[in-house]
Design a protein around this nucleic acid. Structure first.
Length: 344
DNA sequence: AATCCGGGGGT
DNA sequence: ACCCCAGGATT
């Protein structure tokens, strides 16, 4: 056992957090729980995931149950969590595990990585935590910690290979899963992006950046780009208290999710005379008061809502009618929730 | 190597 | 307003 492992695991045994997907000390983790939590935790905070994790386990207690469900039900339960490709891949992955692996998750990082939605990080995390494979698990917490430990000045993402090698080196063969989770606990508590608490850090004397006092300069990241603003008109075609909505195509932005029909999501505004070209049906469109704002990963969106009482035609491509009172029974992406709040 | 893909919380 | 976050897939 190296000194990194000794120091960190000693700290972990004292400060370990209890989380819904984390098994009690000494108990064997359920690979299904580990997998489900790791997918949800991709670019998503622990606090946000907790409620969704509990709900998913109640709805689908086993990978077999999830594999037997419909993608639409998975997406509905995932609504609000974001990055919806994760939910589509979750369903695909469960089906592959059942069909091609006898309902058992592969036990190595290399085999896990062949499954949908499982990449470098998640394959290593499941292999280490659920199956004890001594592999370095590198997420953004670990990138920050390791780049500080060794003062890695190469900018991300080019530094990823070196960070992976360093992480592999300091990961102990004994308890690699605990080491990985301890690193993430450390990164989310003491080794924070700003004002890291080096005084009580188990790596304090081992950390090159802390010795120099320039912790906050690591990791080195490329400059951010400014987000453009897109302005769209969303359509609310009404008929006797029902609204015509769209089931979005299975790929791309908010893929597979329900939403409102709208003009194209571009930076250029649309003139009212062009509304009919984009509306799902003919209508006398009148603008409702207010506008909704939402920010995505790479652009801001401002939406104005127009409404019209229209005949109830049923042959609208990807369209479906739903009573206003039943909107709450459907899982919407947050951007559409905000738009629907503009309805009178 | 770049780009696309959500949303919430901290500061 | 800007930062960050238990990243993966696509091009």
């Amino acid at each position: 056992m190296n000194s990194y492992g000794e120091n960190l695991l000693a700290w972990y045994d004292q400060h370990q957090r209890t989380l819904p997907w984390r098994s009690p000390p000494g108990a064997a983790p359920d690979p299904y729980h580990v997998w489900l939590s790791e997918i949800m935790l991709q670019q998503t905070t622990v606090a946000t995931v907790k409620g969704y994790f509990d709900k998913f386990l109640r709805m689908w207690p086993t990978v077999d149950a999830m594999a037997a469900s419909r993608q639409e039900d998975i997406l509905d339960a995932w609504a609000g969590l974001g990055y919806y490709a994760r939910a589509r891949n979750l369903h695909k992955c469960a089906q592959e595990v059942v069909q091609n692996h006898q309902g058992q998750f592969p036990r190595t990082a290399a085999d896990l990585k062949t499954l949908p939605g499982i990449g470098d990080y998640t394959s290593a995390a499941i292999a280490a935590i659920a199956f004890g494979e001594p592999v370095g698990v590198v997420d953004s917490n670990v990138e920050r910690i390791v780049s500080r430990l060794f003062r890695i000045s190469t900018p991300l993402p080019k530094a990823k290979k070196l960070i992976q090698e360093k992480t592999d080196q300091i990961t102990p063969f004994d308890r690699p899963g605990d080491f990985a989770q301890a690193m993430m606990d450390l990164g989310s508590s003491l080794c924070s992006p700003k004002n890291p608490d080096c005084n009580i850090c188990p790596f304090c004397s081992l950390c090159q950046a802390q010795t120099r006092g320039d912790m906050e300069t690591f990791p080195v990241k490329p400059p951010k780009k400014t987000k453009p603003t897109r302005l769209i008109i969303a359509f609310a075609p009404m008929h006797e208290g029902s609204i015509l909505l769209e089931r979005r195509p299975d790929s791309g932005l908010l893929g597979g999710m329900p939403g409102l029909f709208s003009t194209p999501w571009v930076e250029q505004d649309t003139h009212p005379k062009d509304y009919p070209a984009y509306a799902p049906c003919p209508g006398d469109w009148t603008e409702l008061n207010g506008e909704s704002k939402h920010t995505f990963t790479h652009f801001h969106l401002i939406t104005r809502l127009v409404s019209a009482e229209v005949p109830k035609r049923s042959n609208v491509e990807n369209g479906f009618w739903i009573k206003k009172a039943e909107l709450q029974t459907l899982g919407f992406p947050t951007v559409f929730k905000k738009m629907l709040e503009l309805l009178p």
